[in-house]
Structure formats: C-alpha cells, structure tokens
Nucleic acid binder design. Structure first.
Lengths: 155, 155
DNA sequence: CCTGAAAGTGAAAACCGTTTTCAAGAGGAG
DNA sequence: CTCCTCTTGAAAACGGTTTTCACTTTCAGG
C-alpha cells in the first residue's frame, strides 16, 4: 500500500480506528521522507507539526502503519532497522551509500535467480527480500557533493 | 570465509590474537548450527562445552568473527538480527519458514535484475543483499512435521 | 445537549539485549 | 621467573522499545 493520507484513513476506518492529529503528524513525517528514518527521527520530524506528540505514540503509530503495509523496512549492514514509506505494492529499496536516500523499484524479475537458488539448495522458494545499495543519480554524478551516509553507532 | 577452526586460527594469528578455549567454544557452537542463532543462543550452546563462558565473551567473539567475515547476518521480517556461519565467499541465505534452517546458495546471477533496477531508479548499483525464504527439502516434503519457525517477541 | 463506552495519548517505569568498565587471569617472550 | 599483552567474567551502564496507568478525546445513543 502506498503511504498517503487517504489510503491510511480508509484502512484505519476499516478497523474502527481514527486518524488523530498525532497519527497524522507521524504519517506526514514518514511520507515526506526521502531517506530512511529511525523511530526517533520520525518523532523529531513529526514534532515540528505536533509539538505535544509523545514518543510512545510514534511507536504505536509506526506499528500500525507497518500492519497496514505502508512501511518498508531497511536493514543496515550493521544492525538495526529503519523505516521508509512504501510506495508500491511489491517493491524493493535501493539505498544510496553516499547520501542515504532510499528509492523503490518494482521491476524485479527474480525468476531466474530463484530457480537457480531452488536448484542449488532444494528449497521451495516462496519469498524474497532484496535490498540494493549504490549511488543515486545525484551522488553518482558528483560524488564529492554527497554528504556521507548517516551511520549507526559502531561504524 | 568459511567458518572452520583452522581458518579462524589463521586469521586470529595474523592479527596477533589467540584462539582461546572460550573462543573455540563460540566458534564451534556457531559452526555446528544449521539455523540462525541469536547471541544468547550461541551463549547457551557454547556453554555446554565451556561452562564458565561469559556472555560478554560471546559478544566479543561474535564481533571478531564478523570482522573476519565468518558470519552472515540474517534479517527476520520483524526485527533484530541473527547470525549464521558463512560457508562461502559470496553467498546468500535461504531461510526455511517451517523449521528455521538456513542454507546458503552462491549461484546468484543478479545481472538482469540489477540492470533493471538501475534503469528504473537511475542509481549505479554497487551491492545487493538478498535473502530468500521458503521450505527446505525436508519440510517441503512433509510440511506437517516441520516444527514451527522460532519467532521473536511480538509475533 | 448529556452520558457512557471505547479509542487514544503522554509520562514514567519497566524491559531487555548490548556495550562498557574494571579488576583479575592466562600465556608467550625474554 | 617476570613482564607485558591479550582475555575474561561480573556487574554496571546504556539506549531503544514496550508496558503501565491515569487522563483526554471522540462519538453514538438517549
């Protein structure tokens, strides 16, 4: 599901839930982002438009959005998770290693790869998680301009 | 790098480090595993052969093995990381959704997919993380026998 | 309008996996 | 043996996430 307010409202309504001012702020913050966010990032962003927002609510709302399928998870090489709005039904993410921007792509014809994997391992493959890294058009064109990718702790 | 004692010893020696009794226990525990382990799992396994092992040491050793490249990280759909011994230089994992077993495969010809993604997003792709899920030969043959996959908290 | 029930919220506390600190232990080089 | 460095375990510190709880908001029904 794409993460736009209308769709979210519809999904919420279908469950007898409400789109409150706070939830709205979280949805907007996530939807506006071009790169991956931690829950804390979302919290800080969303607070701009809803100063009395609590971190607890951010967590609760993110979980809600996740259930609805409006979020995509990004796995960093060294650990924890970050979130990104899902823009298509089935999509994968490409993360720019220079600026951290995340873009989705949908044209993934994995048939050949999956068949090979199945042949090699004997598994019946039912799902795949694919995440690419590289340089976005901007950073690729002018590598020096790219701000360094944000990092988690240890790195 | 494959995770066998000899290779580990060599790598450690190259860095002026030692293969202690404790490290040995951790290496063995990880190497013996067919499915993915949490640090705590490793701790408990390794304790069988080294009762005075401390959790701290497990963490330290796992980090070491990770640097050496002897571990592969597995990302569960709902969160945190688990570890699996790496058996090949470049490999990906297939996780059995019934029994949790993890197998590696190396035959991944992603050229076509990567080209498509690059075309669609404008990124210059430099790396990929691929993880498949499915049913291993055993569980696929007799689905009912498969113990349910271990889960993290919320599920 | 009321009113009551259910959804929603924020602050604080609880949790829990991981990392750091620290003093003690082990092992090779000289 | 002695020094020096690598290692180690327990306990404390940390930090992100979840739970608890009392209070607020919303809305349907009277």
């Amino acid at each position: 599901m794409a993460l736009d307010a209308d769709a979210v409202v519809a999904e919420l309504a279908a469950r007898g839930l409400r789109l409150t001012r706070q939830r709205r702020a979280v949805v907007d913050a996530v939807a506006a982002s071009r790169s991956c966010l931690s829950p804390l990032d979302v919290f800080q962003q969303a607070r701009a438009s809803c100063p009395d927002l609590g971190l607890t609510t951010v967590y609760r709302t993110l979980e809600l959005l996740d259930e609805i399928g409006a979020l995509r998870r990004i796995h960093g090489p060294s650990g924890c998770e970050r979130l990104v709005p899902a823009s298509a039904e089935h999509g994968h993410s490409v993360v720019c290693s220079a600026c951290g921007r995340v873009t989705e792509f949908t044209d993934c014809d994995m048939a050949v790869v999956l068949a090979a994997a199945s042949r090699e391992t004997g598994y019946r493959i039912t799902g795949h998680f694919l995440q690419l890294s590289g340089l976005c058009a901007e950073c690729g064109a002018a590598p020096d301009r790219g701000r360094p990718a944000r990092r988690r702790a240890k790195a």
